Simulated scan of single mutants.
Amino acid sequence: MKIRNSLKSLKSRHRDCRVIRRRGRTYVINKTNRRFKARQG
C-alpha cells in the first residue's frame, strides 16, 4: 500500500480503481488488480 498526497492520479491508473472514504482516511482499492492500493490521511 502506498501513502500518497494525490489519489486522483492513482485512480486513473486502472479502470477498476475506486476511491473510498473510511474512518477519516481516503483509500484507493481495486478488487480485480490488488496491486493498486493507496491511502491518504
Rank of each mutant, 00 (worst) to 15 (best):
R35F: 13
Q40R: 15
A38H: 01
T26N: 03
R34P: 12
R21N: 12
K37N: 04
L10A: 10
F36Q: 02
T32G: 04
I3S: 11
R15Q: 06
K31N: 06
R23P: 00
D16P: 01
R4T: 10
R35L: 07
K31E: 08
I29Q: 13
R18A: 13
K31R: 13
T26K: 10
H14M: 07
Y27E: 00
V19A: 06
G41H: 10
V19W: 02
Y27C: 01
V28H: 03
K8H: 12
R4P: 00
H14A: 12
N33V: 10
R34C: 09
Q40F: 11
R18D: 06
F36G: 01
K2T: 03
M1G: 09
N5L: 02
S9Q: 07
L7F: 08
N5M: 09
L7A: 04
R18M: 12
L10Q: 11
T32Q: 07
Y27F: 15
R22Q: 05
R13D: 10
N5C: 03
S9A: 13
K11L: 15
G41T: 08
C17L: 08
R15C: 05
S6V: 11
A38Y: 00
S12W: 02
I29V: 15
S9D: 14
N5G: 05
C17F: 02
R21F: 09
S9M: 11
L7K: 09
R22Y: 03
R4C: 13
V19F: 03
R35D: 09
G41R: 12
V28L: 15
I29D: 07
L7I: 15
G24Y: 01
R39A: 09
T32H: 10
K11N: 09
K31M: 05
N30G: 04
D16I: 04
V28T: 06
N5Y: 08
C17K: 01
K2Q: 13
Y27T: 01
V28K: 03
K37T: 10
N33E: 14
Q40M: 09
K11I: 14
M1E: 08
Y27W: 13
C17Y: 00
R25S: 04
T26I: 14
L7V: 15
S6C: 14
R15E: 11
Y27P: 00
R35I: 04
T26Q: 07
R39F: 00
R35W: 06
R25Y: 08
S9I: 15
R35Y: 14
R15G: 01
L7P: 05
K37A: 02
Y27V: 01
I20F: 08
K2S: 08
N33R: 09
R4I: 13
K31Q: 12
A38I: 02
R39K: 09
A38E: 01
K2C: 03
I29E: 04
L10N: 04
R13E: 15
V19M: 14
D16L: 10
L10T: 11
D16S: 09
K8D: 12
R25C: 07
N33C: 01
R13T: 12
I29K: 14
K11C: 11
N30K: 07
R25T: 02
R15V: 08
R35E: 14
A38R: 02
Q40C: 05
R25N: 07
K11D: 06
L10E: 07
S6K: 15
K31D: 14
I3W: 06
F36D: 03
D16T: 10
R23G: 05
